[in-house]
Amino acid sequence: MAAYAVVVRDGQLLLARSRGESGVLEWVLPGGGTEHGEDPYDTVRREVEEETGYLVEVTALLGVVSRRRALPGRFRRPADHHSLRFVYEGRITGGELRDEIGGSTEHAAWQPLEAVPGLVRIDLLDIALRLWRERPAGGHLEPEG
């Protein structure tokens, strides 16, 4: 389980950059895994502060992204992995932009919304922006197209 924030201010999206599994730097939403017993609502607030320096108020639950896939497991057997990613909308209430030290991300920045399609990014970013734009009542997106 993980929780992520879509924070938009003045036409810009708050993002963090991390090194993906292939070693390529990619833009991600601020957020991450829940700790044992932690509410995803608290996770997103903690993760945004850790990764960007900002304090956020959660203003909406945009949706839950469920993904099931096979990952490399022990002894060359695939592991059946199921992830749940809570996507929240947030608003900055304090703090100052800074990079995370010793964490999973290396840089935090505001990016213009119109520049996002040209960034090297994870697929969750596109899904989260679609949730933010469409705001489906059930928090679930229908497949495009």
Score class of each variant (00 low, 15 high):
1 M>G: 14
4 Y>I: 00
4 Y>C: 02
7 V>A: 05
7 V>R: 00
8 V>C: 09
9 R>D: 15
11 G>C: 09
12 Q>D: 13
12 Q>N: 13
14 L>Y: 06
14 L>P: 12
15 L>G: 14
15 L>N: 13
15 L>K: 10
15 L>C: 15
15 L>W: 11
16 A>K: 03
17 R>C: 13
17 R>N: 08
17 R>T: 05
18 S>V: 05
18 S>Y: 13
21 E>R: 07
23 G>Y: 08
25 L>R: 01
28 V>A: 10
29 L>R: 08
30 P>V: 01
30 P>Y: 05
33 G>W: 05
33 G>E: 12
33 G>R: 11
33 G>D: 10
34 T>L: 14
36 H>V: 11
37 G>L: 10
37 G>I: 04
39 D>P: 12
41 Y>C: 07
42 D>A: 12
43 T>Q: 08
45 R>Y: 00
48 V>Y: 05
48 V>G: 10
49 E>Q: 09
50 E>H: 03
51 E>C: 02
51 E>Q: 13
51 E>S: 01
52 T>C: 13
53 G>D: 04
54 Y>N: 00
55 L>R: 09
56 V>T: 00
56 V>M: 05
57 E>G: 03
57 E>D: 11
58 V>H: 01
58 V>Q: 02
59 T>W: 04
60 A>Q: 09
63 G>V: 00
64 V>F: 01
66 S>E: 15
66 S>R: 03
67 R>N: 13
68 R>P: 09
69 R>D: 11
69 R>I: 01
72 P>T: 00
72 P>M: 03
73 G>Y: 07
75 F>T: 03
76 R>Q: 15
78 P>R: 05
83 S>P: 03
84 L>P: 09
85 R>Y: 11
86 F>E: 05
86 F>V: 07
91 R>D: 06
91 R>W: 11
92 I>S: 07
94 G>A: 14
96 E>P: 09
98 R>T: 03
98 R>F: 12
99 D>M: 09
103 G>M: 11
107 H>I: 01
110 W>A: 06
110 W>R: 03
110 W>S: 03
110 W>N: 02
111 Q>D: 06
111 Q>P: 03
113 L>C: 12
114 E>P: 02
115 A>T: 07
117 P>D: 08
117 P>M: 04
118 G>V: 01
119 L>Q: 07
119 L>N: 09
119 L>E: 12
122 I>P: 02
123 D>L: 05
124 L>M: 10
124 L>Y: 07
125 L>R: 01
126 D>A: 11
127 I>K: 13
129 L>D: 10
129 L>W: 03
132 W>L: 10
132 W>F: 15
132 W>S: 08
133 R>L: 12
133 R>D: 14
134 E>Y: 02
135 R>D: 15
137 A>H: 07
138 G>Q: 07
138 G>A: 12
139 G>Q: 04
141 L>R: 02
141 L>C: 09
142 E>Q: 11
143 P>K: 00
144 E>R: 08
145 G>I: 00
